[in-house]
Simulated assay, not measured.
Amino acid sequence: MKKKNSNGWGFRLINGIILAVISLMTLYPFLYVIFASFSDPVKLMGNSSLLLKPLGFSLNAYKKVFVNPSIYSGYLNTIFYVAAGTLVNILATCMAAYVLSRKQFMLRRFLTIMFIFTMYFNGGLIPSYLLIKDLGLINSRLSLILPGAVSTFNLMIMITGFEGIPQSLEESARIDGAGDWTILFRIIMPLAKPTIMVILLYYAVGHWNSWFNAMIYLRDADKMPIQIFLRDILTRSQLGAMTGQTDVEDVGQTIKYATIIVSTVPILCIYPFIQKHFVKGVMIGAVKE
């Protein structure tokens, strides 16, 4: 018995060391970006070793980023796209998953195949643009919300989560006179909360990082998300450094790190609120009884 406990203690120690090393390797790139964004650009350019703290301390990169008043309108636009887009995504995905998870639905298999088909084949950029144009969504905020209302990958996860809910609950609700809307919003969705929270995070991160569709479909600057403005700032700093503009060249190295922090930290704030649901939501449906 003592030998068994000794072996278990050794395994836990080695496993803990390995996981700690992997965690540090995973965390270091993010710490590097933070340290570099606050570093003196001249010292940063001359550094060739590991960066374990800011080299000097300078806020010039952040000043260059936030001096543009469009940054604030971009943040507001992005918050709108994340909130409205994620709401549409969750509602559309839940309704589609509810229908496709009902075994008695005759077209279930056919529609599932049609959804999966879109994961591997699409019309391409030009047909997509022409479709958005014909729908009258060019230069409309809806062009960043409606075309991607349902992600097939997320839909498959949601279907698996819905299928894991006992069918007896639905049958009991129907005996009590509940309809499909009542069953979906008052029974299925509350019970599938972990899965929904995970899918919510996926959609929110996707909307927050999205910039290509805005660049293609939007024209007015007051509708652009934050990612477009950050991209412009980074591009101008790189061009300024190439042309020898001193004021830009001095902070050109640190601006790219500051833009990463500005565009990443806000969306990271969402994770702590859904962390308790994350593991369960990802694993749900992975093990069948």
Rank of each mutant, 00 (worst) to 15 (best):
N5M: 12
S6M: 14
N7L: 15
L13H: 12
I18C: 13
A20M: 12
V21N: 03
I22F: 14
F30S: 05
V33S: 14
A36E: 04
S37N: 08
F38Y: 14
K43A: 00
G46I: 02
S48P: 02
L52P: 11
K53R: 10
K53W: 14
L55G: 12
L59H: 09
Y62A: 07
S70L: 13
L76N: 04
I79H: 00
T86W: 07
L91W: 11
C94H: 00
A96P: 12
Y98E: 02
S101G: 00
Q104V: 06
L111A: 09
I113Y: 14
M114A: 14
F115S: 10
Y120D: 06
S128T: 15
I132Q: 12
I132G: 07
K133P: 05
D134I: 10
N139Q: 05
R141A: 04
R141I: 05
I145P: 05
I145N: 03
I145R: 01
G148H: 04
G148Q: 07
V150G: 01
S151I: 06
F153E: 10
M156H: 06
I157Y: 08
M158H: 09
I159P: 03
E163W: 08
Q167V: 10
S168F: 02
L169M: 14
S172L: 04
A173H: 11
R174V: 06
G179H: 04
D180F: 10
W181G: 08
I183S: 10
I183D: 01
F185S: 06
F185Y: 15
I187W: 00
K193H: 07
T195L: 03
G206V: 09
N209Q: 13
W211L: 10
W211V: 03
D222S: 01
I228G: 09
F229I: 11
F229L: 08
I233S: 06
A241L: 09
A241D: 12
M242L: 13
Q245C: 09
T246Y: 13
D247Q: 11
D250T: 00
K256S: 02
V262Q: 05
T264W: 08
C269P: 04
Y271N: 00
I284L: 12
I284R: 10
I284W: 06
V287Q: 09
K288A: 04
